[in-house]
Write a protein that binds this DNA or RNA. Sequence first.
DNA 1: TTGCATCCGGTACCCAGGTACAGGCTTACC
DNA 2: GGTAAGCCTGTACCTGGGTACCGGATGCAA
Lengths: 160, 160
Amino acid sequence: MRQDLALPEVGGPYLRSGQVAEQAGVNPQTLRYYERRGLIAEPARSPGGHRAYPPEIVTLLRVIKAAQRLGFTLDEVAELIDTGRRGHPTPDLRARAQAKISEVDERIADLTTIRSALTAVVSAGCDSLTNCTCPDCPLPFANLADGHAPSPLKSRPEEN
Amino acid sequence: MRQDLALPEVGGPYLRSGQVAEQAGVNPQTLRYYERRGLIAEPARSPGGHRAYPPEIVTLLRVIKAAQRLGFTLDEVAELIDTGRRGHPTPDLRARAQAKISEVDERIADLTTIRSALTAVVSAGCDSLTNCTCPDCPLPFANLADGHAPSPLKSRPEEN
DNA sequence: TTGCATCCGGTACCCAGGTACAGGCTTACC
DNA sequence: GGTAAGCCTGTACCTGGGTACCGGATGCAA
């Protein structure tokens, strides 16, 4: 069993990347990826060059994952963390959350439109995309959801 | 102004790829992409090697785009077109549409959960992702939407 | 000191659905 | 026949969020 990295110059019970990854439920590679993306700070290093994380990093990673689940992109999360870190807190998060709510609402509206189009297809009894023989086939008129730009809100926040 | 491609061996008013792309509202490159993906058949060629499409291709492309907007992936669309082409129509499309409705419903439920979490963040007055000072901060408990696999239904069907 | 788990950096690859570019050939119109 | 628009193939690139692999170095317990 591996224990804490012994970092002579600092006292704390530092964690190695694998431990952090396991505790936060992410892939070890993801830690380096987040570091590159600026989501987490470059950690201290052992004399041999191994990353030595403070335990708080685990919480930060959980926060990042939670924010992702709320529909924020990694860029947005990075910005939010950054905003929260410098100076005293601003109402920025609230404003962004509100904007996110609008995005989510838009997305739900789109899906509702899609849903009713699908329902029309089912209830009309369409049997082919290209040569539907059903009467009053809704397929050729399925030009729904046209004409406005795609929402940046992502499909479904991935786990892991 | 360019006119129809004159294809001696066939009589019809064939269309060149640029015309098809314009009429269907897609990028010309997308036609070749769909051809590679098996969504549209390889068209006839002019003696010089230029693609010569029958006018019906425009309708097919519109159908493809409509199906995409309904949340079907290109693979699924390809399969649906194929199913519809061989033999007499089956109730396959209806079954798939029904399955799609379930996916859409699931996705709407997820977004609704996300929405209420965002509302909680706003109404609690959270001011920072990492150091929120608001009382009863909902952020650390935002572990919603956990534990089930991401739906294959895409975010928002892109236009063009 | 040995053995092996873990970590390092760098790079390449994955998904879907396209888009862009380079260099050369065809087509159409005058 | 000249000229320019349009098309050809092949290949590379884009987004977003990671994941995988490589050869070599390190950490740590026995």
